[in-house]
């Protein structure tokens, strides 16, 4: 078994929109369109086993409205945080300034957080992570990976280690069940960018 029992996949939302609605543009607008795109993503994930990491690429999307952001970001995350769902991790790429507000609003409304590439190669947490979770995530993001033997030195306080575990629970970071290492999601999708 490998260190990382997941094979990251890239999902181009722009081309999913064009397949879903007849449009010259990749506009992710209206709730039915968002729902159709979310279901198309869920279909792609249905056959990938019990664990997955998906890079949801929004870079070709011109307009993203709140209804679609709710479906394609918030509801997608919620669906896979349910107890009986498969363990799915997501990184939202190509979250440019015009999309950012819509994504932040829908995540806040549902009390969710997500890893997003908001500038070229620059990642941040959107939504509502706790302050300690954001700090734990930032340290992991800076490091890329934290081995189980490094956890105590990097996260000396119990509260910091709890926050690290919480970001794994919230699927904002990945912990290998083989080695116990913590991985920043951004590094796991780097080869797809």
């Amino acid at each position: 078994m490998t260190e990382l029992p997941l094979d990251p996949i890239a999902i181009d939302v722009g081309s999913l929109v064009k397949r879903t609605v007849t449009s010259l543009y990749s506009h992710l607008v209206t709730r039915p369109t968002g729902r159709a795109v979310r279901m198309a993503i869920e279909n792609q994930l249905a056959g990938v086993g019990e664990r997955s990491l998906s890079m949801i690429d929004l870079s070709e999307v011109t307009i993203l409205d709140f209804s679609c952001a709710d479906e394609v970001v918030a509801k997608l995350l919620q669906r896979y945080l349910e107890v009986d769902a498969h363990e799915a991790f997501f990184v939202f790429c190509g979250v440019h300034e015009p999309h950012r507000d819509q994504i932040q609003v829908v995540l806040e409304r549902q009390k969710l957080a997500a890893v997003a590439e908001t500038g070229e190669g620059s990642f941040e947490l959107l939504g509502v992570p706790g302050d300690d979770e954001r700090e734990a995530w930032n340290r992991l993001e800076e490091q890329g990976m934290v081995g189980s033997d490094e956890v105590l030195s990097m996260y000396p306080e119990q509260g910091e280690r709890d926050a690290l575990d919480r970001i794994v629970e919230r699927r904002l970071a990945f912990r290998s069940p083989i080695s116990g290492r913590y991985h920043a999601l951004s590094r796991l999708v780097q080869h797809l960018l």
Partner: peptide, 20 residues
């Protein structure tokens, strides 16, 4: 220039109000 996105989002949401 980026305001065209927010303008389009307003139009989209306000029209969806009719449909929904």
């Amino acid at each position: 220039a980026s305001s065209v996105v927010q303008f389009s989002v307003i139009l989209s949401e306000v029209c969806q109000n009719i449909l929904e």
